[in-house]
Design a protein around this nucleic acid. Structure first.
Lengths: 229, 229
DNA sequence: CGTAGGGTTGAGGTTAATCAAGTATGGTGG
DNA sequence: CCACCATACTTGATTAACCTCAACCCTACG
């Protein structure tokens, strides 16, 4: 018995706060779709005629180079939306998206949603806020890739993740890698080998303790102190 | 005698196509501001209470690391808008902006513009399209920084610039660096030394000819052919 | 058990940053 | 008009971060 679609929408960052009427109008457009682990949601260049909301599971958005290197742009959790921008721009997805585990998405088709937007400034403002958040995230990613080394990128990533879930990072905080180290490495703009060595180094310095996918922060201050050499 | 502000607005990517009524309502909010070469438009962390349109001159948006390294995110020309996203999100600019030459901007204050947006879906849709374009640009930047070497980044940058100005890149095409090589180097995610060597190498390979700030493409096909080794 | 996937470790190579000089270029004042 | 200076750019030598390749380990699971 699937939860009512309008309820699901109301729990997304994009649509939370909208009146029930709007929610049910949007719900009427939504299509539920399921994906297996590793299944493609879309590929770069595919015709884009709508956007997605994560109901359950997880999705990675990434770029591939011709020689097969991968850069993860975003890791998506339930409640987040993605590919919104494609409905206002060109007709093609600018990156790949793939399910990280069995995943349920809502697909919102472009045409009817755009019509809804035109008579619904409140929804439009929510969409503007959402795109602005994406912009901020990408700006941070550029900053990290261009100006920081792998260690700093990792530390800042964890700090940001903890902040997002309301548990600021201090001594004793535990971060559990939700997606596998190879995926996280790609999100950090590096390869598994380098990421592994980075964790090892931090552990040897006594700043963290790594147990499988669990990372316990031992000296939060030292994590941030060192990079500024 | 400055051109009528509404006319200027109508010539921006963001507001072109709007009816005169909307344009004059927006024009009523706009404030003209002038900046000298090298003058800061805003600094990262400054309270953001509006966004900007370039009337004349040029602006660079960039990130600075603690140790002074710079990554240029965007280079703006007349007709372009920037920092729109800040009016929907947090209160602070996420990067620095600086005039590259004597520059005239229009500043649109946040509050009254948001009110205008709420009753004006057409303007909101234009804004959504604009943010989507920014998203695309940043995605491309991440792709370039993460997955390509300096030479490819340069080649793709020139190709994209020529495309934007309607002169597709072919043998004989001339690209004139509009901002100085150091600024372009930073936009490409490298330093002047490396950029200089990259140009030298391409020239020695007979693919381009560099004369000051003018770059003549000699063998367009070869420019794209080689990177895929 | 045996294998596959995920992760780690080691050795070596590569790209590009850094450091340090040197060479235009252009504007300014004498 | 020239000497001067600042700025922009180039060139060379060295270094550092990180990637690549290859082997290995380990745990889960059939």
């Amino acid at each position: 018995m699937p939860a009512d679609v309008a309820d699901v929408l109301g729990r997304t960052a994009l649509f939370s706060g909208l009146p029930p009427g709007d929610l049910s109008r949007i719900a009427a457009l939504a299509v539920r779709r399921r994906f297996a682990r590793r299944e493609a949601v879309f590929r770069e260049g595919d015709r884009a005629d709508g956007f997605f909301l994560v109901v359950s599971g997880g999705v990675k958005i990434f770029k591939l180079s011709e020689d097969g290197k991968e850069q993860v742009l975003h890791l998506l959790e339930p409640g987040q939306s993605f590919a919104e921008a494609t409905i206002f721009e060109g007709g093609a997805f600018p990156a790949d998206a793939e399910a990280l585990e069995p995943t349920e998405l809502l697909f919102i088709p472009k045409r009817p949603f755009l019509e809804l937007l035109e008579r619904n400034p409140k929804v439009a403002l929510g969409m503007l806020a959402s795109l602005s958040r994406w912009l901020k995230r990408l700006t941070d990613l550029v900053e990290n890739l261009a100006l920081r080394d792998v260690e700093s990128r990792f530390v800042l990533f964890v700090a940001e993740e903890m902040r997002r879930r309301g548990t600021p990072l201090r001594d004793g905080t535990v971060y559990e890698i939700p997606v596998g180290k190879a995926v996280l490495a790609s999100r950090l703009g590096t390869v598994p080998e380098t990421f592994s060595r980075t964790l090892k180094k931090l552990q040897e310095e006594g700043k963290i303790r790594v147990t499988g996918n669990r990372i316990r922060v031992l000296k939060a201050a030292a994590l941030f102190g060192n990079p500024v050499r």
